[in-house]
Computed example of a mutant assay.
Amino acid sequence: MKPCYCGSNQSYETCCHPIHQDVTLAKQPEQLMRARYSAHLTKDVDFVVATYHPSCHAENEREAIADSINSDWLKLEVIGSESGNHENEGYVSFRAFLKDNGYEYCLAERSRFLFEQGQWFYVDGEIDDSIPPKPLTVESVKVGRNDPCPCGSGKKHKKCCG
C-alpha cells in the first residue's frame, strides 16, 4: 500500500487517486484540497488548473502553476475545515511544507472553495506569512530507522532503503 501524498491514513489508490480521475468524487472542500496537494506531488498540472474556479482564469497561469508543482514539497498538515456563509462555500486551513536552497518553507493558508456545476473549486485563500523559513540541517532531514521510508513504499526505513 502506497500511503497517500496528502498525509491521510489511507492509500493513494483509495484517497486522492479516484478524485484525480473524477473530481466530482470530492464531496467536501477538504477532499479537493488534499487532492490538489497530491496533484503537486504527482506533477498533475492539468488537475490543479482544472480545479481552480473558472473566475480565476487558471489556464492563463499554467506556467506559474507548473513552477509551483515542480517545487520540492515535503508534507501537508490540515489544520481544519469549516462551512462558509452558504452551503456551497467552504474553507480549509492548512500548512504545506517545501524545501528550497537549504531552507524549509511553510505555506499556511485558509483556502476558500465553492461548489458549482457538480464539483468543488478552489477560489482563493488568505495566506499567513508569519512563519519564517527554517534552515535545513542534517538532523532535520535525517530519517530514523523506524520512520516511514521517504521513498513512499509504506515500509519502515530500515526494512526498505535504509
Rank of each mutant, 00 (worst) to 15 (best):
Y103T: 03
Q117F: 11
W73N: 09
N101K: 13
A66W: 01
Q10K: 11
K158E: 09
S8W: 00
T14G: 08
A26K: 06
I69C: 06
L114D: 02
L25P: 03
Q28C: 02
V49N: 04
C161K: 15
G144A: 10
V78S: 01
A26V: 07
L74F: 09
S153Q: 07
N88S: 13
G154Y: 06
G144W: 05
V48E: 03
S71V: 06
S11H: 00
S8R: 05
P54L: 10
D46F: 08
A96R: 01
V45S: 01
E59Q: 15
G118R: 12
I19L: 06
S38M: 08
F47E: 03
H53K: 13
P132R: 01
F94L: 09
P150H: 12
H86S: 15
E30I: 13
V141Y: 08
V23M: 08
H17A: 14
C6K: 02
F115T: 11
Q28W: 12
D147C: 07
S83G: 14
A64T: 10
L136A: 10
V141E: 13
L76D: 00
S81N: 08
S38K: 06
G144K: 09
K134A: 04
L136G: 07
C16W: 09
W73C: 11
S71Q: 15
E109R: 00
Y37S: 01
Y37A: 00
S38D: 09
E61A: 13
M1F: 13
Q119I: 11
P3H: 12
N85I: 02
W120M: 04
C106W: 02
G154F: 05
K27F: 07
K159P: 02
L32G: 02
A64F: 07
Y37W: 07
H157M: 10
Y37H: 02
V48F: 12
Q10G: 01
I19K: 05
C106K: 01
N88G: 14
L74K: 14
N85H: 08
T51E: 05
A64P: 00
S81T: 15
W73P: 09
G84I: 10
V143D: 08
S111W: 09
E30Y: 05
A50P: 04
D129L: 12
E63S: 14
D46Q: 14
D67T: 05
Y122M: 04
C160M: 06
H40T: 14
G80I: 14
